[in-house]
Nucleic acid binder design. Sequence first.
DNA 1: CGAAGAGTTGAATAGTATCAAAGCTTGTGG
DNA 2: CCACAAGCTTTGATACTATTCAACTCTTCG
Lengths: 240, 240
Amino acid sequence: MAHRLLSLMPSPDETGRVLNGTLATTITHAYFARPGERPAMLHLILEGWACRYQLLPDGRRQITDLLLPGDLCDIDWLNGFKTSLPAMALTPMRTIALERGAVEALARQQPSFSDCLLTDAQEKFARRGEAILSLGRRSAIERVAHALCGIFVRLQRSGLAREHTCDFRITQLEMGDHVGLTSVHVNRVVQDLRRRNLIELQHHRLTILDFEKLARLGQFTAEPINDNPVSQYINLKEGH
Amino acid sequence: MAHRLLSLMPSPDETGRVLNGTLATTITHAYFARPGERPAMLHLILEGWACRYQLLPDGRRQITDLLLPGDLCDIDWLNGFKTSLPAMALTPMRTIALERGAVEALARQQPSFSDCLLTDAQEKFARRGEAILSLGRRSAIERVAHALCGIFVRLQRSGLAREHTCDFRITQLEMGDHVGLTSVHVNRVVQDLRRRNLIELQHHRLTILDFEKLARLGQFTAEPINDNPVSQYINLKEGH
DNA sequence: CGAAGAGTTGAATAGTATCAAAGCTTGTGG
DNA sequence: CCACAAGCTTTGATACTATTCAACTCTTCG
């Protein structure tokens, strides 16, 4: 079961300090946390996609953060671990659940871990900056191209992409809520990308036929690699 | 000279620890920091507006963060004080300049100050979330209405608005780069808001005639008040 | 007073949303 | 294992929103 998750597994920690967590699974649409709560558990994602989102009174929805394998689900430790936006599973998920108290304690005791959390926050902050640029200034096709590149690279770095393909389990409606378009228009853009021979997208699987070109179309440049990821500090206690 | 800045001046700090800073001024379009740099000085804004922005290769610009009086110019302490996006003055500015080393030292020594920085970061993170919602899901008039409400409330909280009016010194082009529209369209939306008797906007001054209605139009809800602002820790050394 | 920048206007166009209906997939219960 | 239902994807027609381009006016500042 664990071989696909290998790259997310902890490396031996020099200081010997490690956070112990237990395996957890959820179904699609489950909430990891709801606004105002101070969740007992934080989750490191092993498999599956989740998001944070915001709603308008009339039902319009915007996904503000996409959470992929390797991500710590709760950036809200910045906010005293009090959740500001709902975090919801977009697919079935497999996560490592960590006790909030243990995370807080390790952050106080081990500066390198506290730095790691800071880096994690900075990464998410920068990602929101990219989203603002996309939504404000990129056309529909540029936005989708950029988003696909970003998702692919993140999955690749977690060892969840091989060659030029990866799983792609969210719907075009959810994609629309992510890139600020309607699902109908996402569909038209996707077809356009297919016609240009840039991607294949079917049966929950994305294949990027020409990454170079797709990246140019979306003005995508990969973010720097984080050499101090949260996953390093986490140990999965066997015997779920 | 100081009476307008009163609400930003430090209150006596219980612990006696205070960051000493000196008055600095800049002209429009001056840079506080450029990407990759590790600036020697951080700036607390007293007067004037600044922004962080991102450019596309073809010149399209998107403002990702608007920095107003009371804001610490450099959120990038999250990133080890290494600037990620350029921060530029949109108007002439008056700031309190702080030595980076002193800020770092105080953050290490005084937990309440380090919490304060965390809160500051969380506030900016949340503001980016709001921007993503606006750009992704709100119409042009809703975006502008929302932005005007947000700006007014922030200035009001810094004591820089009286009754229903405040200074408004950025151009419609810059406003467009902030809310993801062209300057032409911003102009049309502003005129629409005038026709509806919601605002007056002329001679660098904004008057909100009906805040209630404007807020409803933009789905604006004020963010919670930060009771541990950065400004509390800062002392302006006289004799610039 | 003149120049440069900012705001305003109109017409034409491009881009995206909306609405409605018809195929496809996928997962489920019989 | 099949058939069905629900949810996704696809298509077309149409309306609307925002951009583009170009000119003109008004402010501001030196």
